[in-house]
Design a protein around this nucleic acid. Structure first.
Lengths: 184, 184
DNA sequence: TGAGACATGTAATCGGTTACATGATTCC
DNA sequence: GGAATCATGTAACCGATTACATGTCTCA
């Protein structure tokens, strides 16, 4: 089995974490349960099969640590192909569809882009992200305006929530851009 | 087949929309594609099977409109059981797990709670929501503080993003509470 | 000696995604 | 006549959830 061509969000999280240091399935579960890292299942039924798939695809390599002890750990490392696919996944352009449908994925990508692709790429990522968000907000605003007549009070509040959430994303991006720009 | 006991987010969206007016699968798809209502698949492969399941569970009833025309529509109505289950689903208490894992679901519930359960229940919902968010933010802040040492610059920014997103939710909830309170 | 953390897995089920498939109606 | 919209579906695949299953090690 080889070459599933797209990395799911969970696979991305796993590859990203393993790229920072080799980890076992248990280690990954611990990260997912004890930190607010994305919001991943952390159930063994999700992560062990995911690791198996990544290994079958040759993106990670498992090595048994403590072979002859009674409690061995299978520790995974990024392969060369794994690194390539991770870099490729992180390099994908930020589209308006991402903003609408996959904001979580974008936020997960951010720290990995920083750590792996470096400062300049991160700034570019944030600038495009910001630009896409700023382009999306007016269409939400328009929806809200059209809604005001319909006397759907609660629907309007919900729309307002959406708009404010995106505004919060935008403010965050602007501030991070400012702070990173100083480092250049 | 009967009695799957929990309504998925998609089922909730469908029941909620149908409760406002009877709708066909195509109508539902249109809502999902043309409005920023939650972020649902809107693919026929998701919604038609979902409607079938809800009908098998006796939560909606489909009736063919335009029987003898060449382009009939199957229009679904909420059944009594469907209404009950919807009310029950909307009445579930807001837990800290919801805040962490299912924020989308909560925001989807909000307008339906407003329209179906009424003003008082909505206020209660928002107050508990706000309280849970306010209880959660400090733990995120703590995580961020512990992170500062580790020189994981980008990770810290990502955490900051999480905190600010929850703060935005909290601000929204506070403002809506204020505005609804005036209506009492 | 028992609780809790360490450690890895499988099996059944369920439902979402993608892609395919079909045909009618409306409007230009 | 052709494009867009109306309208409903199926089939293959994939992966997440839930629950089950097993055993070790450490520390109080």
């Amino acid at each position: 089995m080889q070459n599933r061509n797209n990395l799911s969000t969970l696979s991305l999280a796993i590859l990203g974490l393993i790229s920072q240091r080799p980890m076992s399935g248990y280690d990954l579960r611990k990260v997912f349960t004890t930190t607010p890292m994305g919001h991943f299942s952390s159930s063994p039924g999700a992560i062990y099969p995911a690791l198996k798939r990544l290994e079958a695809d040759n993106l990670v390599a498992g090595e048994i640590e403590g072979k002859n002890t009674l409690r061995p750990r299978r520790v995974y490392t990024l392969t060369k192909m794994g690194k390539e696919r991770l870099v490729q996944r992180l390099s994908e352009p930020v589209t308006s569809e991402d903003i609408i449908w996959r904001m979580d994925d974008l936020i997960l990508r951010f720290p990995f882009i920083g750590n792996i692709l470096g400062l300049e790429k991160t700034l570019h990522f944030l600038k495009v992200l910001l630009q896409q968000i700023e382009a999306y907000i007016p269409s939400l605003q328009e929806h809200l305006d059209n809604m005001k007549d319909e006397s759907s009070l609660y629907g309007a509040f919900a729309m307002q929530h959406g708009i404010e959430t995106y505004q919060a994303h935008a403010r965050w991006a602007r501030r991070v851009i400012d702070q990173l720009q100083d480092k250049l």
